[in-house]
Simulated scan of single mutants.
Amino acid sequence: MKRQGIRIERLSKRYGAGDTAFLALKDVNMQVAPGEVVGLIGPSGSGKSTLLKCLGAVIDPTSGRMTLDDRVIYDDGWKVRDLGALRRDQIGFVFQAPYLIPFLDATDNVALLPMLAGVPNDEARRRALELLTALDVQHRAKAMPSQLSGGEQQRVAIARGLVNRPPVILADEPTAPLDSQRAMAVIRILNDMARRLQTAVIVVTHDEKIIPTFKRIYHIRDGVTHEEAGEGRGFE
């Protein structure tokens, strides 16, 4: 099946009711193609976190439509019975902090998700090692998180987000704690892996170091998005 990426149409999110109601997202439209990395930027309180949580099926939108590849997952209500399985198998997450499990080595931190999805242990570890190799941390495959540098931990976290080959990756401030060199390495990796696996990647960021790399940017302010062309100093 040819991948279609993610499409969001007229997505809204309201908190509260009556006089206390607050519209955090207002008819948001967004489309990210397979293999594309786009930036989502905006001031604090603009709706970035709310949008990311809706996209990640962490909270319920109020209205709108979301399509993942060729499957409608939300249309004024969830069209997916098992949201946990959706998050596990179809949506990859990369956070500001790696959140690695401290008592599992790098390989098992990556292999855990496919294992939970029912993939045999040997196959899950094979997939994990393949990604760790692609991310140039295969030599740390047996290292525990406490033995990894910050950059190595983030690469392992990216491998974990990609291991089930999801159609979309949601990256929330993935370069915030990193210096310029490591931040650019992370965004280069995300671009490379997006192309290799034909994954759509949305990067929420305030990091001015990486914003010039995006070819397309969505600005969000007061719950409303505006698309614009970026500088596009990406990685070909």
Score class of each variant (00 low, 15 high):
230 G>T: 10
8 I>P: 07
219 H>R: 10
215 K>P: 03
152 E>L: 14
53 K>N: 15
219 H>V: 01
27 D>A: 03
101 I>H: 02
201 V>L: 11
117 A>W: 03
100 L>F: 04
58 V>W: 01
133 T>P: 13
76 D>P: 01
64 G>T: 00
197 L>Q: 12
121 N>D: 10
226 H>P: 02
180 S>L: 14
17 A>K: 06
220 I>W: 05
147 Q>P: 08
72 V>W: 04
101 I>E: 03
126 R>W: 01
221 R>Y: 15
97 A>M: 02
201 V>A: 09
20 T>C: 12
167 P>H: 07
33 A>I: 00
84 G>H: 00
38 V>Q: 00
213 T>C: 08
217 I>G: 08
211 I>N: 02
199 T>S: 10
177 P>M: 00
64 G>N: 00
6 I>N: 02
40 L>W: 00
199 T>A: 11
213 T>V: 10
112 L>T: 08
105 D>W: 00
24 A>F: 04
144 M>H: 06
100 L>Y: 05
128 A>Y: 02
173 E>F: 03
46 S>A: 15
83 L>Q: 14
57 A>T: 06
60 D>C: 02
88 R>E: 08
64 G>F: 02
80 V>G: 06
183 A>M: 04
35 G>A: 05
214 F>I: 07
188 R>C: 06
6 I>M: 10
215 K>L: 05
80 V>N: 02
224 V>I: 14
150 G>F: 13
151 G>V: 14
94 V>I: 14
63 S>L: 00
106 A>W: 15
207 D>R: 03
111 A>E: 07
84 G>Y: 00
225 T>Y: 07
143 A>C: 14
62 T>K: 00
75 D>R: 13
85 A>I: 01
233 R>W: 05
2 K>Y: 07
183 A>C: 05
167 P>L: 06
195 R>P: 15
119 V>N: 12
135 L>I: 11
29 N>G: 13
157 A>K: 11
75 D>Q: 15
209 K>P: 04
109 N>I: 10
14 R>N: 13
86 L>G: 13
8 I>A: 06
191 N>F: 06
214 F>M: 10
165 R>T: 11
71 R>L: 03
108 D>M: 07
100 L>Q: 07
159 A>L: 13
191 N>H: 08
132 L>A: 05
132 L>H: 02
51 L>M: 02
160 R>S: 14
189 I>R: 01
193 M>H: 01
227 E>S: 12
199 T>P: 13
133 T>M: 14
81 R>E: 14
31 Q>T: 15
191 N>A: 06
198 Q>T: 11
42 G>W: 12
52 L>V: 11
212 P>W: 03
62 T>N: 00
11 L>W: 06
208 E>G: 04
190 L>I: 09
68 L>W: 05
49 S>H: 09
77 G>F: 09
124 A>E: 12
16 G>D: 05
28 V>E: 07
180 S>D: 12
170 L>C: 08
110 V>T: 13
105 D>H: 07
133 T>S: 15
98 P>S: 11
207 D>T: 03
115 M>Q: 12
235 F>A: 10
217 I>S: 10
123 E>P: 04
30 M>Q: 06
99 Y>H: 09
192 D>Q: 14
42 G>Q: 09
20 T>M: 14
